Simulated assay, not measured.
Amino acid sequence: MNKFKEWYRKNVNDKNETKIKEALEFKNRFVNICGNTYFLGKGMIADLPDIIRVDKAAYGNEMKWTKAQFKTQLNNNKDRFYLILRKDDELVGFICISISRDNKCCQIQNVAVLPKFQHQGLSYFLITTIIERAREMELNCVFFICQVGHIKTQDLFKDLGFVQVEVKPNYYDDGENAIVLRLNLDKKNYLASNNFGR
């Protein structure tokens, strides 16, 4: 039994870990989204004030994370990953994910875009880029938990092929329910197959 565990660790776990590490080694670059040029980069702790500013602008009083929580996420490079978009040096959007190696799933923890840059394809771009990264890691699914009342957010994810799989009663501190939206990665969907963000 011990020989099998050792073989499994070397031949399966180590290979999976290598794929995850390679996918998380993100090279900063300029990208074109709907005719506009943006800087796409991996979020760093130096981006913390700008990330909080974007989150506040996007969600206002509905912010669910504290500054300390954002900082913890940014400092965790093993299973957390931030992507940021900048326009003329201004951080205009970001996305944060966490990876569950045991479940072979990726959770989109947060995605936010400044109001004046919304409806310009930035959220689609960030989400589809994460979907492609999850495929490179050979994960089984991507999921997102959001408030029941956020219909526009749900519609965005459903347009990308996510389906509602669960309702979590009283999930948030204010007692609001949450829904779980999930995308299985065993088949390609149209938008996610266009290799956005590469």
Rank of each mutant, 00 (worst) to 15 (best):
F81A: 00
F81E: 00
Y82F: 15
Y82R: 01
L83R: 05
I84H: 03
I84D: 00
R86K: 15
R86A: 09
R86D: 06
K87S: 13
D88H: 05
D88L: 05
D88V: 03
D88K: 08
D89A: 11
E90G: 05
E90P: 01
E90W: 03
L91N: 05
L91W: 00
V92M: 07
V92I: 13
V92H: 00
G93N: 04
F94G: 04
I95L: 06
I95S: 04
I95C: 02
I95E: 00
C96D: 12
I97D: 02
I97R: 04
S98A: 14
I99H: 08
I99G: 09
I99A: 07
S100G: 06
S100M: 01
R101W: 08
R101N: 10
R101C: 06
R101S: 11
D102T: 14
D102A: 13
N103I: 00
N103E: 14
N103S: 08
K104I: 09
K104W: 04
K104L: 13
K104P: 07
C105V: 12
C105F: 10
C105Q: 12
C106D: 00
C106Q: 07
C106H: 01
Q107T: 09
I108Y: 08
I108G: 02
Q109Y: 07
Q109F: 07
Q109I: 13
N110I: 15
N110E: 15
N110Y: 07
N110A: 15
V111Y: 07
V111N: 05
V111P: 03
A112T: 04
A112P: 05
A112I: 02
V113H: 06
V113K: 03
L114T: 06
L114Q: 12
P115L: 11
P115W: 07
P115S: 10
P115D: 11
K116V: 14
K116M: 12
F117M: 12
F117I: 02
F117L: 08
F117A: 08
F117N: 09
H119V: 09
H119L: 11
Q120K: 14
Q120V: 05
Q120Y: 09
Q120L: 13
Q120P: 05
